[in-house]
Amino acid sequence: TTYYDVLGVKPNATQEELKKAYRKLALKYHPDKNPNEGEKFKQISQAYEVLSDAKKRELYDKGGE
């Protein structure tokens, strides 16, 4: 599973699309609303952290993490 899959976006997604997808999923899986989905929330946050940063995203796209 790639970070793009976690957020449900395509690899060519814009920053705005990433932000929108992250917010939607973060609300859905937030531990306050969904106590059993803490791990999913962490995955979503990690994916967004990497993909929202241009340098980290470039490194990730080249095969790094």
Score class of each variant (00 low, 15 high):
Gln46Asp: 10
Lys55His: 13
Glu16Val: 09
Glu58Cys: 09
Leu27Trp: 15
Pro35Glu: 07
Asp5His: 09
Leu25Asn: 04
Gln15Phe: 15
Pro35Arg: 05
Tyr4Leu: 02
Ala26Tyr: 14
Glu65Met: 15
Tyr48Phe: 11
Gly63Trp: 14
Ile44His: 01
Ala26Ile: 14
Gly63Ser: 13
Asp61Asn: 04
Asp5Ser: 08
Thr14Phe: 02
Lys19Glu: 15
Asp61Ala: 02
Gln43Ile: 12
Ala13Glu: 02
Pro31Glu: 07
Asn34Ile: 05
Leu27Gln: 14
Thr14Ile: 02
Asp61Trp: 02
Lys40Asp: 06
Pro31Tyr: 06
Lys24Thr: 14
Ser52Asp: 02
Asn34Leu: 08
Leu18Asn: 00
Lys62Ile: 08
Phe41His: 04
Lys56Trp: 08
Gly38Leu: 14
Lys19Gly: 11
Ala21Glu: 05
Ala47Thr: 01
Leu25Lys: 04
Pro11Ile: 09
Glu17Val: 04
Arg23Ser: 14
Gly64Pro: 13
Lys10Phe: 09
Glu17Tyr: 02
Lys62Ala: 12
Lys10Leu: 11
Lys20Ser: 14
Tyr60Gly: 02
Gly64Trp: 15
Ile44Asn: 00
Ser45His: 12
Glu65Tyr: 15
Asp32Asn: 14
Val50His: 06
His30Val: 04
Glu16Ser: 09
Asp53Cys: 05
Lys33Met: 13
Leu18Met: 05
Asp61Thr: 03
Gly8Cys: 07
Thr2Met: 06
Ser52Met: 10
Lys10Cys: 13
Asn34Trp: 08
Val50Gln: 04
Ala26Trp: 15
Gly63Cys: 14
Tyr3Ile: 04
Thr14His: 04
Leu7Asp: 00
Leu25Gln: 05
Ala54Gln: 11
Asn36Tyr: 11
Pro35Cys: 07
Lys24Cys: 12
Lys56Thr: 09
Tyr48Asn: 02
Asn12Arg: 05
Thr1Met: 13
Val6Cys: 06
Gln46Arg: 09
Val6Arg: 05
Lys55Glu: 13
Asp53Phe: 02
Lys42His: 06
Pro35Leu: 06
Tyr60Asp: 02
Lys33Glu: 10
Tyr22Val: 02
Asp32Ser: 14
Lys20Cys: 11
Glu58Ile: 05
Val50Ile: 14
Ala54Pro: 15
Lys40Trp: 10
Tyr3Thr: 01
Leu27Met: 13
Asn34Thr: 08
Pro11Lys: 14
Lys28Ser: 09
Tyr22Asn: 01
Gly38Phe: 14
Tyr29Lys: 02
Thr1Gly: 13
Asp32Lys: 11
Ala47Glu: 02
Glu16Arg: 12
Lys62Arg: 11
Tyr48Lys: 01
Ile44Thr: 02
Ala26Glu: 12
Pro31Thr: 07
Lys10Ile: 04
Pro35Thr: 07
Leu18Trp: 01
Lys24Ile: 12
Tyr48Pro: 00
Pro35Gly: 10
Tyr4Asn: 00
Thr14Arg: 04
Glu65Gln: 12
Leu25Asp: 01
Glu16Thr: 08
Glu58Phe: 07
Glu16Lys: 12
Tyr22Ser: 00
Lys20Arg: 15
Lys28Leu: 12
Lys40Arg: 11
Lys33Gln: 12
His30Ile: 04
Lys28Ile: 12
Tyr48Thr: 00
Leu27Ala: 15
Tyr4Ala: 02
Leu18Ser: 00
Leu7Lys: 00
Gly63Tyr: 15
Ala47Leu: 02
Tyr60Val: 03
Leu59Glu: 15
Lys28Met: 14
Lys42Ile: 09
Pro35Met: 06
Leu18Glu: 00
Thr14Leu: 04
Tyr60Arg: 02
Lys19Ile: 12
Asp32Cys: 12
Asp32Arg: 10
Leu27Val: 07
Leu59Ala: 15
Gly8Val: 03
Asn12Gln: 08
Tyr22Pro: 00
Gln15His: 12
Asp32Glu: 10
Lys33Val: 15
Phe41Arg: 05
Glu39Leu: 11
Thr14Gln: 03
Lys19Phe: 10
Ile44Gln: 01
Ser45Cys: 12
Glu16Gly: 09
Leu18Ala: 01
Glu65Gly: 13
Ala47Arg: 00
Gln46Phe: 07
Asn12His: 08
Lys40Asn: 08
Asp5Ile: 06
Gln46Lys: 15
Lys56Met: 12
Thr2Ile: 05
Leu59Tyr: 08
Tyr4Cys: 01
Pro35Asp: 07
Leu7Val: 02
Glu17Gly: 05
Val6Glu: 04
Gln43Val: 12
Ser45Glu: 13
Tyr29Glu: 02
Pro11Val: 12
Gly63Asn: 13
Lys20Met: 15
Leu18Tyr: 01
Arg23Met: 15
Gln15Lys: 10
Ile44Ser: 01
Tyr29Val: 04
Phe41Gly: 02
Ser45Asn: 11
Asn34Gln: 08
Leu27Asp: 14
Lys40Ser: 06
Thr1His: 11
Ser52His: 06
Glu49Pro: 00
Phe41Val: 03
Ser45Tyr: 12
Tyr3Cys: 05
Lys28Tyr: 11
Lys10Tyr: 08
Thr2Asn: 12
Arg23Gln: 15
Asn34Tyr: 11
Asn12Leu: 06
Leu7Asn: 01
Glu37Ile: 07
Lys20His: 10
Glu16Tyr: 10
Tyr60Pro: 01
Glu65Asp: 09
Glu37Asn: 14
Asn12Cys: 12
Tyr22Ala: 02
Pro11Cys: 10
Tyr3Gly: 01
Gly38Pro: 10
Thr1Trp: 14
Asp53Val: 03
His30Ala: 10
Ala54Met: 10
Lys40Phe: 11
Gly38Lys: 14
Glu49Ser: 13
Asp61Cys: 03
Asp53Gln: 03
Gln15Asn: 13
Pro35Ser: 07
Ala26Asn: 06
Leu59His: 10
Glu17Cys: 05
Lys33Ile: 14
Lys20Gly: 10
Gln15Cys: 09
Tyr22Asp: 00
Asn36Asp: 13
Lys20Ala: 14
Tyr22Leu: 03
Asn12Tyr: 10
Gly64Ile: 15
Lys55Trp: 10
Glu17Pro: 00
Glu37Tyr: 14
Ser52Leu: 07
Asp61Ser: 03
Thr2Tyr: 11
Tyr3Lys: 02
Leu7His: 00
Leu27Ser: 13
Lys20Trp: 11
Ala13Cys: 12
His30Leu: 06
Lys55Tyr: 11
Val6Thr: 07
Glu65Pro: 12
Tyr4Gly: 01
Tyr60Asn: 02
Phe41Pro: 01
Asp61Arg: 01
Val6Ile: 15
Tyr29Asp: 02
Asn12Thr: 15
Asp5Pro: 00
Leu59Pro: 03
Asp5Val: 05
Asn36Ile: 12
Glu58Val: 05
Glu49Asn: 09
Leu51Met: 02
Lys24Tyr: 12
Phe41Met: 08
Leu7Thr: 00
Asn36His: 14
Tyr48Ile: 04
Leu51Glu: 00
Leu27Cys: 11
Val9Thr: 04
Arg57Trp: 02
Gln46Trp: 08
Glu37Cys: 13
Val6Phe: 07
Phe41Cys: 05
Ser52Pro: 00
Tyr3Glu: 01
Lys10His: 11
Thr2Val: 05
Glu58Gly: 05
Gly64His: 15
Asn34Val: 07
Leu59Cys: 11
Ala21Arg: 04
Tyr4Arg: 01
Ala21Ile: 03
Pro35Tyr: 06
Arg57Ala: 03
Tyr48Ala: 01
Val6Asn: 04
